[in-house]
Computed example of a mutant assay.
Amino acid sequence: MDKAQSKSFTKIQGEGPHGTTLAPLIRRYIRYLKLERNYSPNTIDAYRHDLHLLLSHLSEQGLTPTDVKLDDLQRFAAWIHERGIGPKSQARILSGVRTFYHYLVVDGYLEVDPTELLESPHLPKHLPEYLTTEEVDRLEAAIDLTSAEGHRNRAIIEVFFSCGLRVSELVELKLSNLFLNERFMRVVGKGGKERLVPISQRAVGELELWFDDR
């Protein structure tokens, strides 16, 4: 927070609607985040920063938190955008603002939540990154097969990539769930859900080499 923001926030802490102070409200809100929402200290610090930004902007507009309407919050969203804050950070700040107004409604400061129709910036969809077949081949080729763990590591990589497993599924995979003659495995995924996954012949070969080493 810069000096101007800090001065503005200090002012709005000391002044509220009808001459009341906002400092007790802010303390109760932080306590709500700790005790009711069970947020971590880092998350609480982020939400406190979001509230500082909001109060600074409202102070410049001559408003208090309980005065605002949807239009005021939309102007706040435009304000943080104009400050050069990235879309992800804008979305996080607006999430913090929504949490604050949810608290004001829950605690009886407001009857209607003005953030209900407040939209966050549209974030670009992030496509998952993946390795190409050539990259996986180079990864396997880099393994030292003369080491004690060589064939084990080759088996790990081949099963992981060719069977499309999550890391947690690979770690929890049991020998009793491997059916190499039939070339499939039983995988336990999220929520304990089981599925049958085909095993490539190459993965079967790497597993058998590892079994010989074991």
Rank of each mutant, 00 (worst) to 15 (best):
P41V: 06
Q90M: 12
E182D: 14
P24Q: 04
A91Y: 04
L63Y: 09
L51P: 02
T146G: 06
H49T: 13
A155K: 00
D67S: 13
R202S: 14
V112Y: 10
R98I: 01
S40I: 08
D67Y: 06
Y101T: 00
E172L: 11
S40G: 07
R183Y: 11
E140S: 09
Y101C: 02
I80D: 03
Q5S: 13
R214T: 06
K69S: 12
A46R: 03
V197I: 13
A91M: 06
L178M: 10
I157L: 15
W210G: 01
D50C: 07
H126Q: 15
G62W: 00
A203I: 04
T99E: 10
I30E: 10
E140Y: 01
S168Y: 06
A148N: 07
L51M: 11
T21V: 08
I199T: 07
L209M: 15
E60Q: 14
H52L: 09
A4P: 00
E119W: 06
R138E: 15
Y101V: 01
R214I: 05
P198G: 09
S200Q: 11
S59D: 13
E111W: 03
E158P: 00
W79Q: 12
R138I: 11
L25S: 02
E111M: 06
V112A: 10
N42Y: 09
D2M: 03
R202K: 14
Y39V: 05
P198M: 11
I156Y: 02
K193I: 05
E169K: 06
E60K: 14
S162N: 13
I85P: 02
P87I: 00
L117C: 04
K125Y: 06
D72F: 03
V204Q: 05
L25Q: 02
R48M: 04
P198D: 14
L178F: 02
G192I: 04
R83T: 04
E135C: 03
G192K: 04
R37S: 03
P128F: 10
A155W: 00
L104T: 05
T146S: 12
Y29D: 00
G62T: 09
E116K: 13
E15F: 07
V188H: 08
G16D: 03
E149D: 11
G189V: 10
P17A: 10
H122D: 12
G16E: 02
F179L: 08
Q201D: 13
F100L: 09
